[in-house]
Design a protein around this nucleic acid. Structure first.
Lengths: 338, 338
DNA sequence: GTAGGGAAGTAAAACGTTTTATGCAATCAT
DNA sequence: ATGATTGCATAAAACGTTTTACTTCCCTAC
């Protein structure tokens, strides 16, 4: 707000005929002020449309009611225009809406490491990091600055850090593989992303362990998250060249759509000759033909859990974690054999 | 940052052996300080990892290098989970990335009218309102508080307000209708959204005028933006009940996908018997079968224009507008007759 | 030899709030 | 009657910057 014209606490004090202390105490429910005076002050504040200046307040109390959001994997995308995992694109909006109902604002901070650092960055009450990297430097930086943070997804290199929430990825992986198995699949191929985050890591681990149990040679085709549908098609080509598997499990919906397009173009019948599924639901999985079986993640549930965790962390200095959210398998045409 | 442990300007001053004024002047390139001293101060600041406290600075200078973003139409959606127009979901990310490169942060402020107002809301340097309503109360509120703002889309009820950017919607409407016409369409149906913004308004106006020029009775089937693909299917049902037109023009990609699904389900050949196009490109238009002709909007271009406009507004108090961005028609299978 | 002026630097005020430390009655316990 | 407590309210300090006004020193011009 343009300075010099704002209504300050002094104006309210004058109007109510009391001291600034009385105004502050009245409005914040502190100190010992009679009910009558409190009411008078509140009336005066309302009439003037008074709102305490956030900077002045923040300066005094050290917190400001705003939390920063770092969308870790999107940082790599530069201008955010190429589409990554759908989940990322929607998470900011979900978090913002949830935060508002708790009286918090959300500030998007694309990358704390790149200079210049946005002025407000180090003045946030706390942070949410989405999909932290293996040993995330952003987390390390926050640690140094003593700023509390929580993560959507584990920090791989730091198992002792428990302030995170996520869907139960290992469980999801097992469920998807079991789903394939029940439909008769024996050889399954995995198409993970290249980001070093817990999501990719956990799926790869579960997949390897599944292959071990079933004595099947693992086949993994990494593909960068942001390569999208085209990347999926490329993976599809490579998979076909190496031999058609019974099923393909892709981590992102876009990759799954790409693989399917490539398979279909090569004349492969889906789900007849090969099945496809994705570990995260998206527009692509829903609108492909046939529609692709996928796990519907729960960003809203995780956002709630994370905000609650962060709030507790801010208030009491500690919080319990991690928190695992329920995700749901959505079986669709790409795996339905009849 | 937890107070009490931060490094203040005083620490730097002590370390460099100068006054706090000297530090402030050195780091901000003001005052008259010798090069030698400036260098010494900078070195001290770097060694200590000093970062000026954003609140204290903001308090003094009145601005803080952060701008608020209000996604107007998403406000109605409540928890942001149901999918609206794709454009909205990506705009926040694009703006944030663009803003960062200019050293600004972006704060998401879902609705300034709902209480409690997030503390920082009225301390933003300026605002970007995406898709302002007909006579937007948020704009009015900012006006009262004397906070500069720019809009993605016109404020319908205030033609004198020029600080906005957008694609050239009337032009796009004419191009799409001409495209239909060239492919042989005579009767065209319009499926706009229900939000009272300039996007919907301009398309309806151009459509009506086109109908007038061609002596065709207008057929309009409004559908709420957030109703998505399902809403599109409902519109499709109603359109079919009233008689199959030569072409359907939907404002959102989701609606177009829904209409197409419904038409296909009813055995209508697309584009043979009826054509479909959307005024905004999205995953749905691209991945439908047949792919749906659509206008590829230019949120990145608009974001740049808006940020530049806002910056000029903040620095000089005035800016020139509006700014019209180029959008591109993507003809696809849904209108390609051969 | 002194007035004038720039260069380099500093002390102190100011921003708007919250918090701490007091003050002053009036009431209560002894 | 005196000291202690309570209820209500306030003055002043503090938060960390930036900015204003001032000092000091040195140089140049008359």
């Amino acid at each position: 707000m343009a300075r010099g014209e704002g209504i300050t606490i002094r104006d309210v004090a004058r109007r109510a005929g009391v001291s600034v202390t009385a105004v502050s105490h009245s409005l914040n429910g502190k100190g010992t002020i009679s009910e009558a005076t409190r009411a008078r002050v509140k009336a005066a504040a309302d009439e003037l449309g008074y709102q305490a200046d956030a900077f002045a307040r923040g300066m005094r109390q050290g917190s400001i009611g705003a939390i920063g959001l770092v969308l870790r994997s999107l940082d790599a995308l530069g201008d955010y225009t190429p589409a990554g995992v759908d989940l990322f694109e929607r998470f900011a909006g979900i978090v913002a809406a949830r935060a508002l109902s708790k009286g918090l604002s959300i500030t998007l901070v694309p990358d704390l490491l790149r200079r210049p650092v946005p002025p407000l960055a180090f003045s946030m009450d706390g942070y949410i990091i989405m999909s932290p990297h293996e040993d995330d430097p952003v987390a390390a930086l926050l640690e140094i600055r003593n700023i509390p943070y929580v993560c959507y997804g584990r920090i791989l290199a730091r198992p002792e850090f428990t302030h995170w929430a996520s869907e139960d990825d290992p469980l999801a992986a097992r469920q998807l593989l079991a789903h394939f198995e029940a439909a008769g699949a024996r050889e399954v191929v995995l198409v993970p992303g290249t980001d070093r985050n817990s999501w990719n890591h956990d799926f790869v681990q579960e997949y390897l362990s599944w292959c071990g149990r079933h004595e099947v040679a693992p086949r993994i085709y990494e593909q960068p998250e942001q390569s999208g549908v085209d990347g999926g098609r490329q993976a599809g080509t490579r998979i076909l060249a190496d031999g058609l598997p019974d099923a393909v499990l892709c981590l992102t919906g876009r990759h799954a759509a790409g693989v399917q397009q490539e398979f279909l173009a090569a004349g492969v019948n889906i789900p007849g000759q090969s099945m496809i599924a994705a570990a995260s639901d998206s527009e692509h999985t829903r609108s492909s033909r046939p529609a692709i079986t996928a796990f519907e993640l729960n960003p809203a549930g995780c956002a709630d859990a994370l905000l609650e965790m962060l709030q507790k962390l801010l208030e009491t200095g500690s919080a319990s974690g991690p928190s695992l959210a329920r995700a749901k398998l959505r079986p669709r045409g790409s795996t339905r054999r009849e």
